[in-house]
Design a protein around this nucleic acid. Sequence first.
DNA 1: CTGAAAGCGCTTACAG
DNA 2: CTGAAAGCGCTTACAG
Lengths: 330, 330
Amino acid sequence: MPRADFDAVTIEDVARRAAVSRATAARVLAGHSNVSPSARQRVMAAAAELGYVANPIARALATGQGNRVVIGVVSPRPTVVVDAYLGRVVGTAARMCSEAGMGVGLQALPLDGGVPLVKLAQDRAVRGLLMVNTTDSILRAMPGSLSRRVVSIGVGSAQVPSIDVDNGAGATAIIRHLYESGRRRISMVGGPPWLPCTARPLLAYRRLMQEYGLAERSLAGDFTADNGRAAAHEVMRRWPGTDAIYAICDDAALGVIKGLQEQGIDVPGDVAVAGFDDTPQAELAYPPLTTASHPVELITEAAVTTLLASGPARPLDRAFQPELVLRQSA
Amino acid sequence: MPRADFDAVTIEDVARRAAVSRATAARVLAGHSNVSPSARQRVMAAAAELGYVANPIARALATGQGNRVVIGVVSPRPTVVVDAYLGRVVGTAARMCSEAGMGVGLQALPLDGGVPLVKLAQDRAVRGLLMVNTTDSILRAMPGSLSRRVVSIGVGSAQVPSIDVDNGAGATAIIRHLYESGRRRISMVGGPPWLPCTARPLLAYRRLMQEYGLAERSLAGDFTADNGRAAAHEVMRRWPGTDAIYAICDDAALGVIKGLQEQGIDVPGDVAVAGFDDTPQAELAYPPLTTASHPVELITEAAVTTLLASGPARPLDRAFQPELVLRQSA
DNA sequence: CTGAAAGCGCTTACAG
DNA sequence: CTGAAAGCGCTTACAG
């Protein structure tokens, strides 16, 4: 049998030294109140003297709770691409989980969950699932054994709470700004059609175009700068008069600026460009990018907190409000 | 006692169904060869029919191995800031660990390791430690119980293997390029003095300046764009004739460009700017940034692989070679 | 090749 | 308030 290292102090050692049973030592260490002051004191002293540190693995096995939070990235591709956004989510989750003595996993999930979702549900080490890029079909496919252990950064359902930015409100604020600063031929570079949460900005765009009596000129996209760049060419080809482009995220917006500049089009002189997210790059861009804030770290923290606190009741949905950040590009 | 969910199939169930002992079932499932074909077959069939999935927590407890890889970020600050670089490291590590049924943690570590390092060494759930921004003092303080479980993305030691990019070679290639394209007053914006791995680029810079018979003009920095921006002002104030700035990383270089443009200085007309990393932003910058590649994902993969494969022998150090990426900024 | 048994280090009803 | 005991679900010497 495997021998632990030289310094593996167990609760057994603490109990012996404090002259109590293992059960009593466990109670003290767990902070229960039904222990005599003297026993409590001896256990605390023994634990301190021995430098006792509980084995989280043993605890996890005994309590039946997993010690890994998995970030499930819904994606048409079988392998996760870690872009800047996902890096922020994973990094923040890892920092938080670490404090709680847990780890973070990262897993690609087909749009409908598929086999990977079933495997996740069966994995007894999984404490919770944090979904990113959630689809409606994966929400429908959510195994019951995962209930009260799932949170979505994106759309939610009756079972799964949604904790996300209110990107509909963000889109509205940005597009209103474009209109109010005199733009009248406003295009939109959106997200992937299969991703429900991108419907909100698109809907906001459509509503406003209708309200303003302007024509709709929108393209689907995929959040990347490369796509934004290509979209800038496509937009100007299809709608030559365009005087403003709203992109679904900053990465795409930066690509749009690049693509416009390649055509000799001045930003914002000829075409105003606005993004969404207020990433660190937005300020460094040339021209500095007008956008709306997206508190990715706060959202992730809220999601992880919810997951780790999971009780019997379904947690409430939360929508974080973006703020307009005006710079020079629009 | 906690009841497992409805569908918790254990190895006990598999053994019973296959009419063998738990030990035999375990052997088959572990892929050992000392099992009769018929027993093997029955166990495999039973496991498949029951949909058996081993409980990783129980396995971890029995084998005494942790199931979390911790990324220790050495830093003067008590809390980890997840920048784009770290996001790539954590994301990649999480993806890999997830495949191995493990999780990733993220922990700030004082320059000398301090209490957090001791706690990490005591945590029985920690399978390995991946150090980022490694200092010499933390290498000296490395607890023996962590040996063969640590890898450094940065400087290493006799105990701790180093898996990193050869940033000295990268710096040399970049600075040579600046010189060969006619620049003669070359400044450098470096990294934090407490971080040993930033000594290599600085040393490369000094050697080349000496070789070329040029004056040294270097500033320490902190890898951020804000710092690069401020450094651009400082450089031009202290050394007005500067015609090229090499920054230790792309983020800083992007800040440098920004800071130069603020002063009405043309890049690369008046001052050439080069970075290091070839981040996704480098290509989108205006002007597109000349830099050298830094395969962060490959390095992280190598580090995690090394950690998970940890055997009795000290793994070899590895240095990844950067490649010069010429764009318009220099 | 196989099984009975001990062990990993906790937690938590149960019965005082 | 406390202890003896069972249990979490595996792995692995040990003795056939």
